[in-house]
Simulated scan of single mutants.
Amino acid sequence: MFTGIVESIGRIENIEKEGENLHITIGSPLAIELKIDQSVSHNGICLTVVAVTDSTYTVTGIKETIGKTSMGQWKLGDRVNLERAMILGTRLDGHLVQGHVDQTARCISMEDSEGSIYFGFEYDEKQSNITIEKGSITVDGTSLTVVDSGINTFKVAIIPYTLEHTLFGTYKIGTVVNLEFDVIGKYVAKMLSMR
């Protein structure tokens, strides 16, 4: 489990294809603190550390993960939002995030609001995921509050700190992001659909 509070931004140093898998090596100051078998969120994707050096670590993405996330589009030099798994007994500053990406979305708008920037996203409504105003959403591993919700669109307001310390500062119209919808909302929607 994660909180959606990005700890660091890593850089993709190497990508190796092996069959349907991708082995991705990330350069990060977090590397020295990691161990093999730990879970780390990469743009909201929970991946297991399989190798570590003092300055890099490697994770493996399988076909299922590559097909449902933005991982297949990653390239050398790309930056990724990183968060280590949460420790029970500490503050939960974001919301409960599983690191299981539900689907991708595309950035469709950015508007400056004199102190924050509103980012709008559009996703495929066929997967029946929903947002609600004031509800939680995870965008590339960043825990956010929905400020405007449509059938297959939503907006979030990003403060300058988040813009500087996450990938939001690199987004432009058309950027593809990973979404994880609120787990409690997903259970409620599933129960209602079964009635």
Rank of each mutant, 00 (worst) to 15 (best):
M1N: 04
S8H: 13
G10N: 06
R11F: 09
I12A: 05
E16N: 12
K17D: 11
N21G: 04
L22E: 10
L22A: 07
I24A: 02
T25A: 06
S28A: 12
P29Q: 07
I32Q: 13
I36W: 02
I36A: 08
I36N: 12
I36D: 07
V40E: 01
S41M: 04
H42D: 04
G44A: 06
I45L: 11
T53M: 14
T53L: 14
T58F: 13
V59M: 04
G61S: 13
G61F: 15
K63D: 11
E64L: 02
T65W: 02
I66F: 07
K68G: 12
K68H: 09
M71P: 05
M71Y: 10
W74D: 08
W74F: 14
W74G: 07
K75N: 12
G77D: 15
N81K: 00
L82F: 01
E83G: 02
E83P: 02
R84G: 03
A85N: 07
A85F: 07
I87V: 10
G89R: 04
T90G: 09
R91W: 10
G94N: 01
H95F: 06
L96N: 00
L96I: 14
V97I: 11
Q98P: 02
G99A: 07
H100T: 09
I108S: 10
I108T: 15
S109W: 04
E111Q: 13
D112L: 11
I117W: 03
F119M: 01
G120V: 00
F121L: 05
F121P: 00
F121M: 03
E122G: 08
E122H: 10
E125N: 10
T131N: 02
S136N: 12
I137R: 01
T138A: 14
T138M: 08
D140Q: 08
S143F: 02
T145F: 00
T145R: 04
T145Q: 03
V146S: 01
V147L: 02
V147F: 01
T153W: 04
T153S: 11
V156Y: 00
A157I: 02
P160K: 06
P160Q: 08
T166R: 08
L167W: 08
L167N: 14
G169I: 07
I173D: 11
V176P: 11
L179R: 03
E180P: 07
E180V: 11
E180L: 10
F181K: 05
I184Y: 09
K186T: 03
Y187C: 13
Y187H: 14
A189S: 13
A189K: 10
M191T: 11
M191S: 12
L192A: 10
M194C: 08
